[in-house]
Design a protein around this nucleic acid. Structure first.
Lengths: 340, 340
DNA sequence: CTGAAAGCGCTTACAG
DNA sequence: CTGAAAGCGCTTACAG
């Protein structure tokens, strides 16, 4: 049988309430009693039983606020799915989730939600943080008010958030580079479609890709173009790239815009080129099935959403600090037959 | 606030013990009271709080017996890791795990362990079942004694086990086929190294592989040889295959023996061939890093071990029946940069 | 068949 | 500073 507070109380000759205070660093215990209880607990190897704790927390639920950019984005739909999965697993422990949708690119709106959560005195917050000083300051303010913050999908630098959950973008670019090299058997010309040269995320992926390809003398990156994550621009720039270079062997799509891109590819009958994209959406699924795309690389969004809630809950409820500052989600390679 | 047994009891004008009996189909309640309580519970949408239940189960732990083939096998080492992960997550609910190692191929030994678990009156059993009538009969006997059995890694047909957790072997062969086709750009000669033509598991993979390759007129399977999962045999047969056919472009290793195989490949300086294997071991990691193997396909053993325990625990503790008879683990494609 | 009480392990509000 | 009691939601052994 496991050691309980009752056993420690009996051995120390004090009440259970007192033991609880010592073990949880609450005030109001004499130094002498504190030491005695602590020693006995250590000797017996006491580990709190979270079930007992959870039951006594039923009246006082743990509230986690989640900021989610407009759900139209399929990536965030899956993140949300993972969040609800975690909610189902932890709700009997007293977990409550407060979801707020925002416009992805508006930091004032994100700030408003954070302020709302602050007023509500939630226990923790999960947010795909916009890299803006007002957001950073707000996060630090929340943390100093003992409201823990976990960032996901996009991180904010130099803030006091507990940790960041997301993809290792550079690494995911390297995986794309390795796949491209294998598809091209180390030889050929590659065009890259990126979102924006101003987006750190996109640049990290491209740098990872280059770190692999640059070691292979016969693979050349012949062009890098921006599509601003818009399908109609992706369509246009892909057309332009194809017109400009007659000898393209592979395409690496490092951002959104895959639909517009693929229209151009299909119009030019370029299906047999080596093509690598990101994320698993209805569009990429169809393109994989039709042998347009060879591989798409995902960041396991469901697991990611689950993890964010799990980490916050474990910190708030059990006091467990995440092992790493940056919790990397697995990089998954998807092709025709392993989509589900 | 969630609906509790107390609320139902108050509304129904009975005691909480009586409500408990109704909700859990225990005997000793009059038809009239049963109906009344049931109706109120339904109207309020009662869902049991597992924390309350878990706390009252502390004295009466749930014991799950696990049969694990000799741990020298790295695949089962990872399975075991997943099992302990699940144990950590559920131990406060009162879960106990009893591990027994057996020799993989000895069904008498496996039977002995099952008998031991039967005598111990464990609540559930996880076993990589050997496909033998004595094992099947024992499983059915256990189930009829209300000891649930989940098979994993290898299933046993026509038994009353709750479900099987494992890889979709045919599908994993298809994934290998797709990868091979991409590496060869749909053209080339492939040799297959399998374990044994008598092993269903190996044949399923090969059939999946063929289902893809057979649709591609320019890919030919020029040889299929057995290595009986032994490295020294794999070494020999690979040597023989290479001597026999001068024009091999790819190798598909559908079973164990990768170490012996790779020695032959490296000796012949065949690193640049398209090569696909299974599982992520120290050997395959090194071979991926050194560009010998292009891809290895895994069945997420840690998640698999976790899942087995989770399913048994949920069934025994919460009465949740697995959604499927065959719980398929995700098929993961591993290459140089996404090994961890 | 039914109810009252005790207990699982932990926390808290209150009395002293 | 310390203890006794009550409570979280569910289950069980026992009395009637």
């Amino acid at each position: 049988m496991r050691v309980t507070i009752k056993q420690i109380a009996d051995l120390a000759g004090v009440s259970r309430g007192t033991v609880d205070k010592v073990l949880n660093n609450r005030v109001g215990v004499s130094e002498e009693v504190k030491r005695r209880v602590q020693r006995i607990a250590n000797e017996l190897g006491y580990r709190p039983n979270i079930i007992g704790k959870a039951l006594s927390f039923q009246k006082r639920p743990i509230v986690i606020g989640v900021v989610i950019p407009v759900k139209s984005n399929p990536f965030f739909t899956e993140i949300t799915e993972g969040i609800y999965k975690a909610y189902e697993d932890f709700k009997d422990f007293g977990l409550k989730i407060e979801m707020r949708e925002t416009d992805h690119l508006n930091s004032q709106e994100q700030l408003d939600v954070l302020n709302e959560f602050h007023k509500m005195k939630v226990n923790g917050i999960a947010v795909p943080a916009l890299d803006d000083t007002i957001i950073k300051n707000k996060i630090n303010e929340l943390v100093s008010d003992n409201i823990q913050v976990v960032t996901f999908a996009s991180d904010i630098h130099n803030s006091n958030r507990l940790c960041f959950v997301g993809q290792d973008l550079y690494k995911s670019g390297q995986v794309a580079g390795v796949l491209m090299a294998k598809l091209l058997r180390n030889k050929g010309n590659v065009a890259i479609i990126t979102g924006s040269f101003n987006m750190l995320a996109h640049n990290d992926r491209i740098e990872g890709f280059q770190s692999i390809v640059d070691t292979l003398p016969d693979i050349k990156i012949i062009d890098i173009v921006e599509c601003l994550d818009e399908d109609y621009i992706a369509h246009e720039v892909t057309n332009a790239v194809i017109e400009k270079h007659k000898d393209i062997d592979g395409f690496y799509i490092a951002a959104a815009g895959i639909k517009g891109f693929s229209q151009s590819i299909e119009a030019h009958n370029y299906k047999d080129k080596a093509i690598i994209s990101y994320d698993l959406t209805e569009t990429t699924k169809v393109l994989l099935r039709n042998d347009v795309i060879d591989f798409t690389i995902t960041q396991e969004p469901i697991e990611q959403g689950y993890k964010v809630i799990e980490l916050l809950f474990e910190y708030v409820f059990k006091g467990i600090v995440p092992k790493e500052d940056f919790i990397k989600v697995k990089i998954r390679i998807i092709t025709k037959e392993n989509m589900d």
